[in-house]
Structures are given as C-alpha cells and as structure tokens.
Write a protein that binds this DNA or RNA. Structure first.
Length: 428
RNA sequence: GUGGGCGUAGCUCAGUUGGUUAGAGCGCCAGGUUGUGGCCCUGGAGGCCGUGGGUUCAAAUCCCAUCGCUCACCCCA
C-alpha cells in the first residue's frame, strides 16, 4: 500500500466542508477589503526564494523542497507566498496602478518534521498591499489579520507587534547588539552562537532558557529607531488604537524572514500544541526592489489555515456548509429505477441537489441512506405509483407524505427547492 | 537532524505471568416489518495483530532491526 507522503494529508468528508466554508468566508472578507485574488504557481525558480526570503534563514537553508527539472532548471515548491506574489506583481507590471491589493490562498511546502499544527504541505491565506508607505497601510493589514480571525468567531487571539526599523537604524542596532553580546557569547546556546555572526537580531527571541538567563538587559531596537521609523511605528499604534484593536508591543519579536523592515507582527492563539502563531506579517519596503523591480513599499500578512482550523476546533466553533441532498430518490423495481433516474437527472440539470441510487435496493435500505445523507425530502416511486402515474413525496423531518402526479414533477420539486432553498444540513 | 510514545477489523480501542478457532463498541450489510429512516432486537461480512528476523514445544504478547504514525526539540503558519 502506498500512503500519502509524510507530512501531507488527504482532506475528506467531514473536514472538507470546513475547508470549503473557511475558504468561502476568507474570499468574502477579501471582497469587503477590496483585495483580489492572485494565483501563482506552486513551484518557482529556487532563486526567487533564495533572494526573496534570504540565504541564512531556516526556510532557505534547510526546509525547501528543491529539485531540478528535466530541462536542468532549479525549482522549489513554494515555502511561502510573499515572494511569488512579488514576482508576479513585477512580471505583470502591477506597479503601474498603485495601491495594489492582492490575496492568495493555497498550499505551501516546507521540509520539516511534522508535529501538531505543522505539516510539510500546509495552507496559507495571505494578503499583500503594495504602494503605500504610510502607517495606514500597516494598520489596514493588521486590521485585516485581526478581522480574519474575528469574523470566524475566534475572539481570543493576541496580536504582538514590533518595529525592526529600516536599514540605517537596524544596522546601528545590530552593531550595538553584537558588541553587547560579545562578552556573553560563551553563555549562549549553540544556535545563538552562530546567530551572533549571521543574524544577531534573532537572538532576541530565542526561547532557550539558557539564553534568556544569560541575556538579561539587552538594548531594544525600539530605542534605536531613527526619527522616521519612530514616527511610523507610533502612527501604526495610533491607528490601531483608534480602531480599538488590542495589540501588545513585543520588543523581542523578530520573525524569520529577511525581507521585513519597520512593522512586524504575529497573531498568537492557544491550542496549537507547541506552536502558538496562527498568522504573521509585516512591512517589506525593499523586497520589490531586491527582486528587480522599482522601489515599491509593501505590507502583508499570512494566516496558517490548518492552525486556524485547529483553533476553531478548540473553541468548538463549527463552520457548517450545506452538503446534503435536497431530494433523495427511492425507486422500487427495475422500471421505477429507470423513471427515477430520468427525473433525478433532470432535477440535477436544474441545479437541485439530488441523490440518485444506481441499483435496486429495498425501500428500508434506501430510507436509511436518505436519513444518513440528511436529505430533506424523499421521493418514493414504486409499481403502485407508476400505475397511478404518481409518486410519494415524504418530508424527512416529520415523516409526513403526500402523493403528487408524475406529470410536471420535475417542475414541482424545482419550485419546492426554490422556495425552501438549502437548509444548512450536513451529511457529516 | 535528535529524542519520547504508539502500530490489533473501515473507525476508536481491549487482549492477563507467552497457551488452543484474536475480541468489544461504533460503522457497514441482511433480517425482525412480503413498500417506509432515526430507537430497539437478532444475525452476518470484515484481521499476513505494520514489516523482516530471532528466542520458544508455542509469540499479538519477549528480543533485535526496519518502516510508518504521533508528540516534542530547532524553526515557523
């Protein structure tokens, strides 16, 4: 037997309706915010991520699904959504009309050991806002992130924000930090020893108790922000508080991508095992340029959908989606099966969700299936009815049934469906 | 990459100090109702006990290896 590869899974019936409903709501939300969908390929040139996400990040160094195609091209299954969106944004010259609001929704791939809330193929929903430098853009994105969870009924999320400054103030801070860490190097964990050389900022959010102890009082980037960055960050905070979006300033929040500058944020929630982030994002003013485009400021965020569903489950929030048949057809006998098959097919042509049996079965067995399928109505069609050119229409809720003529039956049931519409019933 | 836990029916899991035809609940199928679901009752189908090797008169049970799942470290969504 061949199983799905490690860290991947099949999404089937009970779960798949949750996914459909989740996706439907996210798209609806994007419409409200004026974001339009951008679908990019699932694989890209390896170079895109090497340059976009940055060499030296965990993602690029050890988590990418890389392969060489038959033409010798170096290809990578996308580990995140922002770099591909920027690539497409440039390829289609979307910077000619700014601001540009884009969203994506789909699978991402990272080669890691799976655990609770972490898969090798997982799904992200993300939004990117191009062409606005002022704090309102950051506020819009953070509000959108916040509203994403709120609109799903998750009240209990916390947003942590920080500012990483720009290349000038961050550079100065990095040097200062390195200098201050120098004497304590020996006390830090192995990881942080290498970070010291490559990316000292990441030492700030190291969770190892060894480092937490050794670090003690370190300078904070917020104290090193240049006047512009300081003003921008305070603008973001003012905007958020005007919208009454509660955020926690976390000076140690760094995040794992190289492309962020100024605002970074993370949405955290309980119930994800050892993980706590269900979404995150920030500003990336240099990325478009680094990928060969003009200077276009941008902000974005991404939400992990598996984790979002985990949190929904934790809170007992059920996203329901009607997937039950409106009509269950229960023919008795060969002749009735043929007649039912035709009626059922005509109803399907008219968009009425119809369960159609393909073989003869006892009425009892058919009723059981109708019940299990949560059908709203069952149409019973046997010899007796055929004789009289009639059928029995049974309402499954209360078991009441009426005889209706075969003549015009398709129209009659279609009318019934138009009136009652979908009922929010769920098979699973 | 490292460590812990677990692999028995479609699903959730029992299975005693190794001992005869490996069990339950749910689900599925059929019957109780010669044409009526949900509740109830009866019966049935369905298992290389993850795989390979070893110990033993005898292995689901003990040992080794291997694969898979899972949780955690690292990092992240």
């Amino acid at each position: 037997m061949i199983n799905a590869p490690r860290g991947t899974n099949d999404i089937l019936l009970p779960q798949v309706t949750l996914w459909q409903e989740l996706e439907r709501r996210l798209r609806e939300l994007c419409r409200a915010y004026g974001y339009s969908e951008l679908r990019t390929p699932i694989f890209e040139s390896t170079e895109l991520f090497a340059r976009g996400v940055g060499e030296g990040t965990d993602i690029v160094d050890k988590e990418m699904y890389n392969f060489t195609d038959r033409g010798g091209r170096k290809i990578t299954l996308r580990p995140e959504g922002t770099a591909p969106v920027v690539r497409a944004f440039l390829e289609h010259k979307l910077h000619s009309t700014l601001p540009s609001r884009l969203y994506y929704l789909g699978p991402m791939f990272r080669y890691e050991r799976p655990q609770a809330g972490r898969m090798r193929q997982f799904h992200q929903f993300g939004c990117e806002l191009f062409g606005a430098e002022g704090p309102f853009a950051d506020v819009e994105i953070i509000d959108l992130a916040w509203t994403t969870y709120r609109s799903l009924g998750i009240e209990d999320v916390q947003i942590k924000i920080n500012s990483l400054g720009c290349e000038t103030c961050r550079g100065a801070f990095r040097e200062e930090l390195k200098k201050r860490l120098e004497p304590k190097l020996g006390e830090l964990c192995n990881n942080c020893q290498t970070r010291h050389a490559r990316n000292p900022l990441r030492i700030l959010d190291c969770k190892s108790p060894q480092c937490q102890n050794a670090l003690g009082q370190l300078p904070q980037i917020l104290d090193y922000l240049c006047p512009d960055c300081r003003e921008h960050f305070s603008g973001v905070q003012k905007g958020l508080s005007a919208l009454e979006i509660p955020v926690l300033v976390d000076p140690n929040l760094v995040r794992g991508f190289d492309y962020y500058n100024r605002t970074v944020f993370e949405v955290v929630a309980e119930g994800l095992g050892a993980q706590d982030a269900i979404g995150g994002g920030g500003r990336y003013n240099k990325l478009v340029e680094e990928l060969g485009g003009p200077s276009v400021p941008a902000v974005g965020f991404a939400a992990g959908l598996e984790r979002t569903l985990l949190v929904l489950e934790q809170y007992g929030i059920k996203l329901t989606r009607d997937d039950a048949p409106f009509l269950y057809l229960a023919p008795l006998g060969e002749e009735a099966l043929a007649v039912a098959f035709k009626i059922g097919t005509q109803l399907r042509h008219r968009g009425v969700p119809t369960y159609l049996p393909l073989e003869e079965r006892s009425l009892k067995a058919q009723m059981k299936v109708a019940n299990r399928q949560a059908a709203r109505w069952t149409l019973i069609l046997g010899d007796e009815e055929l004789e009289k050119r009639q059928a029995v229409l049974r309402k499954m809720d209360d078991g009441t049934q009426t005889e209706i003529p075969l003549e015009g039956i398709v129209e009659l049931i279609e009318d019934l469906f138009q009136k009652e519409g979908s009922s929010g019933r769920c098979k699973a």
